[in-house]
Structures are given as C-alpha cells and as structure tokens.
Simulated scan of single mutants.
Amino acid sequence: MGGGGGGGDGEPEFQIAPMIDVLLVLLIFFMSITSAQVLSIDKEIQLPVAKDAKKKEKDVQNEANINVRWTNGKATILFENSSYDVVEPLVEKLRARHDANAKYRAVIRGDKRLPAIEIQRVMSVIAQAGIDDISFSALNKE
C-alpha cells in the first residue's frame, strides 16, 4: 500500500526539520549582509532632525559613511573604525576609493551638537578627495 511518508492512515507528515534549516540559512544571510553597515554606524552620535528627510538608498558598496562625533567640545572624524585627527590620510583613502569607483559618494553622519564649521571642514576633506556627491544623515522625527 501507499508510498512516501507518514502513518498507515494515508495522511502525509509535516516535516519541520527542513523548514528550520531554511530559516537558519535565511537568518545567517540577512545577518551577514547587514553587519557591515551596522558596524559603520556610531551609536554615540545624536543625529539632527529634518522632518523632510528622504529614505536612504541601499547602495552600501558605493558610499563612505563618515561619522563626526562631538565630545568635550572637540570634533572627531571616524571612518571605518579609525579616528582621524590629521585629515591627510583620510583624504588619500577616500581619493583611492573614488578613483576605483567613479560613483563613490560620501554620507556625513554629524552629531546635532556640532558647530557648522566642523561640518564644513569635513565637506572640505571630502572635496579634496574628489568626491562631489555628498549626503547628510538625519532623522525624520525625534
């Protein structure tokens, strides 16, 4: 009588093990593709609020996330887990990325407590690297 699966009453069994395998593979996949972007976000930065802010594009390979932290009355520039007090090495690193990829752009994640002159300084660093596509990260609500 009957073939594949289950008891003698003819009803098929529900196989849960393959479903769990698929869910674990999906979980690992989503964790791996988001980890690089999550690592580039500095939790200490309080982003400014811009009620008309637009949603970010999802092209992570073509952008530099530059965090500018304001602590104890001093601005600190962070890029790829490195702090830059002297900006020349940062300019060279950004220039190399831009030379390798003409669509490379910069996203400035500046603390809302930063003076405007510090944002201007970071924009100058990005311009020295030859990058002319600059965006600012902001929240659209508190």
Rank of each mutant, 00 (worst) to 15 (best):
Q15C: 05
V60E: 11
T76P: 00
I77A: 02
K103L: 04
V86P: 00
Q15K: 10
V91P: 01
N140Y: 11
V91Q: 02
K51N: 14
E88H: 06
D111P: 00
A102N: 15
V60A: 14
R113S: 15
S82C: 03
E13F: 12
A50V: 15
E44M: 10
V87H: 12
V122P: 00
V49M: 12
E11A: 09
I41G: 03
D85W: 03
A106C: 04
E92F: 04
V22R: 09
I66F: 03
K141G: 07
I117N: 13
H98N: 08
R69G: 01
V22D: 15
P12F: 10
V86F: 13
V122M: 02
A100S: 09
A116Y: 15
G3V: 04
K54W: 06
G5R: 15
A116S: 11
I126P: 00
I131K: 02
I77Q: 01
A53C: 11
D9H: 07
Q120I: 10
E13V: 06
M123C: 11
A127P: 00
D59Q: 08
L139R: 12
D21G: 08
H98F: 04
K93V: 01
S40F: 03
N140M: 12
K93S: 03
P48Y: 07
T34F: 13
K103M: 10
D21W: 13
A138K: 10
A96D: 07
P115H: 12
F29P: 01
G3M: 14
V68C: 06
D52E: 07
Q61N: 05
P115R: 12
P89L: 02
A36T: 14
I126V: 11
T71K: 14
P48D: 05
G7M: 12
V125A: 02
P48W: 13
K74I: 04
I117T: 14
V38I: 07
F29W: 11
A100I: 00
T76M: 07
K43N: 08
A116D: 05
Q37D: 13
E11P: 00
N62Q: 05
I108H: 02
R95Q: 14
